[in-house]
Measured scan of single mutants.
Amino acid sequence: MSGYILFSSEMRAVIKAQHPDYSFGELSRLVGTEWRNLETAKKAEYEERAAKVAEQQERERA
């Protein structure tokens, strides 16, 4: 899992709640824009969280 995927899943729900009429493409475009504009430190937080999720998933598969 990547930081972007984690961010995307969280942001998509927020944007969808604010704009229920937006298409999947419109939501994706907005999520991508939000990610590109996100501060580097915040991106790093998402990357760290994603790494922890990936480690947990790997342990569960073992």
Rank of each mutant, 00 (worst) to 15 (best):
M1W: 01
M1L: 06
M1I: 09
M1D: 11
M1T: 08
M1C: 06
S2D: 12
S2K: 10
S2G: 10
G3K: 00
G3V: 00
Y4V: 02
Y4A: 04
L6V: 04
L6P: 02
L6Y: 03
L6Q: 03
L6S: 03
F7G: 02
F7N: 03
F7K: 03
F7H: 02
S8D: 14
S8K: 13
S8Q: 10
S8L: 09
S9Q: 14
E10I: 02
E10N: 03
E10S: 02
M11H: 07
M11W: 05
M11E: 04
M11R: 15
R12G: 15
R12E: 14
R12I: 12
A13N: 15
A13D: 15
A13P: 15
V14P: 03
V14F: 10
I15C: 05
I15R: 06
K16G: 09
K16W: 05
K16E: 10
K16Q: 13
A17K: 12
A17Q: 11
A17W: 04
Q18K: 13
Q18R: 14
Q18C: 04
Q18I: 05
Q18S: 07
H19W: 03
H19A: 03
H19M: 03
P20H: 04
P20I: 02
D21G: 12
D21Q: 10
Y22P: 04
Y22I: 14
Y22G: 06
Y22S: 14
Y22M: 15
S23H: 05
F24L: 14
G25I: 09
G25P: 08
G25H: 14
G25D: 14
G25V: 11
E26A: 06
E26G: 03
E26Y: 04
E26M: 10
S28W: 04
S28N: 09
S28V: 07
R29C: 07
R29P: 02
R29Q: 06
R29T: 09
R29V: 06
R29W: 04
L30M: 14
L30T: 12
V31W: 00
V31N: 01
V31I: 13
G32I: 07
G32E: 15
G32S: 14
E34Y: 13
E34W: 06
W35Q: 02
W35K: 02
W35Y: 03
W35E: 02
W35M: 01
W35F: 01
R36W: 04
R36E: 15
R36K: 10
R36G: 08
N37H: 07
N37A: 12
N37W: 02
N37K: 13
L38K: 00
L38T: 03
L38H: 01
L38A: 02
L38N: 01
L38D: 02
L38P: 00
E39C: 13
E39F: 00
E39T: 15
E39S: 14
E39D: 15
E39H: 10
T40N: 13
T40Y: 08
T40G: 13
A41P: 05
A41N: 08
A41L: 06
A41T: 11
K42Q: 07
K42C: 03
K43V: 03
K43N: 00
A44P: 00
A44L: 14
A44K: 12
A44M: 09
E45H: 05
E45D: 07
E45M: 05
E45R: 06
Y46L: 01
Y46R: 00
Y46M: 02
Y46F: 06
E47M: 07
E47H: 07
E47N: 08
E48H: 08
R49P: 00
R49S: 02
A50L: 01
A50D: 01
A50C: 03
A50M: 02
A51K: 14
A51T: 10
K52W: 06
K52A: 09
K52G: 10
A54I: 08
A54F: 07
A54T: 13
A54E: 12
A54G: 08
E55C: 13
E55F: 09
E55W: 06
Q56K: 11
Q56W: 10
Q57N: 10
Q57V: 09
Q57P: 09
E58Q: 12
E58H: 07
E58R: 10
R59W: 14
R59P: 11
E60M: 09
E60L: 10
E60H: 10
E60S: 09
E60N: 10
E60A: 12
R61M: 08
R61L: 12
R61G: 13
A62P: 11
A62V: 07
A62N: 09
A62K: 06
